[in-house]
Simulated scan of single mutants.
Amino acid sequence: MENSIKKNILQLLNNLSDEIPELKTANENTKLYNGFGGCLDSLALVSLVADLEELLSEEFDKEIILADEKMMSARNSPFKDV
């Protein structure tokens, strides 16, 4: 399941690579959020998380919520990398 989720994240990042060229070579160590040295601003991160929630909800046929207010402001954010 973990590999499937990583594959979905990398697929979504690849879809963004036309707008953000740094994502063409994204891998599981790619830094995401620019607050942590990544290439996504807050709006792009929210969009990525929303797209990923939708994709995973469809794949696993369950409602999936990846972000809430606490996660988005956490010091050790789960969104700093893939």
Rank of each mutant, 00 (worst) to 15 (best):
M1K: 05
M1A: 14
E2W: 06
E2Q: 12
I5M: 07
I5G: 04
K6C: 11
K6H: 13
K6R: 15
K7P: 03
K7C: 10
N8Q: 15
N8R: 14
N8K: 13
N8H: 12
I9S: 10
L10K: 06
Q11F: 13
Q11A: 12
L12G: 02
L13R: 00
N14M: 05
N15G: 14
N15Q: 15
S17N: 14
S17E: 11
E19K: 15
P21C: 03
E22C: 03
L23Y: 15
K24P: 09
K24L: 12
T25Y: 14
A26Q: 02
A26M: 05
E28C: 08
N29P: 06
N29E: 15
N29S: 13
K31H: 11
L32C: 04
Y33G: 06
Y33I: 05
Y33Q: 08
N34P: 07
N34V: 03
N34C: 08
G35E: 08
F36K: 10
G37I: 04
C39H: 06
L40N: 01
L40F: 02
S42E: 13
L45S: 03
L45M: 15
V46K: 07
V46Q: 11
V46T: 12
V46W: 06
S47H: 13
L48M: 10
L48Q: 01
L48N: 01
V49C: 09
A50L: 06
A50N: 05
D51K: 14
D51V: 07
L52S: 00
L52N: 00
E53A: 07
E53C: 12
E54P: 02
E54D: 11
E54L: 12
S57V: 11
S57D: 11
F60T: 05
F60R: 01
F60S: 04
D61K: 13
D61F: 05
K62N: 14
K62W: 09
I64K: 02
I65R: 07
I65Q: 09
I65P: 04
L66Y: 04
L66R: 00
A67E: 10
A67I: 02
D68N: 15
D68A: 07
K70W: 07
M71C: 09
M72S: 01
M72C: 00
M72Y: 01
S73E: 15
S73H: 10
S73V: 13
A74K: 10
N76C: 01
N76D: 14
N76S: 09
S77I: 03
F79S: 01
F79L: 01
K80V: 05
V82R: 04
V82C: 15
V82M: 15
V82K: 09
